[in-house]
Design a protein around this nucleic acid. Sequence first.
DNA 1: AAATCGGTGTTCGAATTTCGGACACCGACT
DNA 2: AGTCGGTGTCCGAAATTCGAACACCGATTT
Lengths: 184, 184
Amino acid sequence: MADFTKKAIKESFIKLLNEKPISKISVKDIVTDCKVNRNTFYYHFQDIPALIEEIVTEQAEELIEAYPEIESLEKGIEVATEFAIKNKMVVFHIYNSANRDLYEQYTMRLCKHVVTKYLEVAFKDVKVSDEDKELAVRLISCSLFGFVYDWLDSGMSEDRPADIKRLCEVCRGIPDIIIERSRN
Amino acid sequence: MADFTKKAIKESFIKLLNEKPISKISVKDIVTDCKVNRNTFYYHFQDIPALIEEIVTEQAEELIEAYPEIESLEKGIEVATEFAIKNKMVVFHIYNSANRDLYEQYTMRLCKHVVTKYLEVAFKDVKVSDEDKELAVRLISCSLFGFVYDWLDSGMSEDRPADIKRLCEVCRGIPDIIIERSRN
DNA sequence: AAATCGGTGTTCGAATTTCGGACACCGACT
DNA sequence: AGTCGGTGTCCGAAATTCGAACACCGATTT
């Protein structure tokens, strides 16, 4: 089964995201756009947050797929940041919505999700304890989140590469510290 | 219902058409490409010719939709030729296949189909008898078919606009003759 | 304060679509 | 003569999509 309907729902949502803020997108808008029954939406997804979760997860996986040979955490941060900034980014639409507090939590969840996904790959050949892995996720997620927060707050500077570099500088020490800790 | 699966099957077919000659495209190739059960193909389409028929019909309808205000038969011929040449053209792939005789008949059928579709619009506000309409379809279809035949045979010249103009010159007299005949 | 409105999320059963697994058939190739 | 790959068809089961309800909520209107 190839789930064309599910795919169409996702595409409609992304399309609508480019037309209006997420807070104004209803389930009805989505199903109207792709001409399916409202129940079909609920058959595939719990609710809109679940839809977002799946889209973001997919994009993260696609990204990791595209960079199978990430050699360093720094590169990983860069890639994760690219993910958050370059690729359309559902995250941003969420962030820009009205219910800021709610979606800040959600953005953080997404950051952790992305970073965790990445670290599964990045830590594959390095022996690091589970606790340290968790620490790495937290540290890097917070950095990523903070960067996105700042980047959006300061008016979305056009010079993304420089901004990414800045984030990398912030995070550069973290992986070394983690690996060092792991060696005791 | 939005028939995403059916749409996917069509898209897979068109995709495969750009990779290999139509005579080498099997139902299995199609369903493998879009990850659908073979029976699902047969649920939607009688066979591959029926699939082609539907694709071409749709493209013709889209074209007519895009040119709702065709003012003259000449313009119509131009549009129909554009349809046959500019828009990817399933017709051509058919034509280039091994079983030339079979598909020449089919190409002619398609030409007639397109021209009929067009003339329904073009003759809408002109009172022309059914016999004359049929004559117009035959004459213009043959011109279109002959043009495509010649165009392909002579190595698909790059200067399409000039070729279209040439076809229009060939056909220019036809509509006038038809309308004149209709006036008795 | 009550009523209306638009959206949510859920349930149900019916209808449609997709599926896997058969089958006979055919033409090409061994 | 037998194998192979493709076709077109059949079946019943499973999955998906549907329309029509329902209670619920929050905002807006009256």
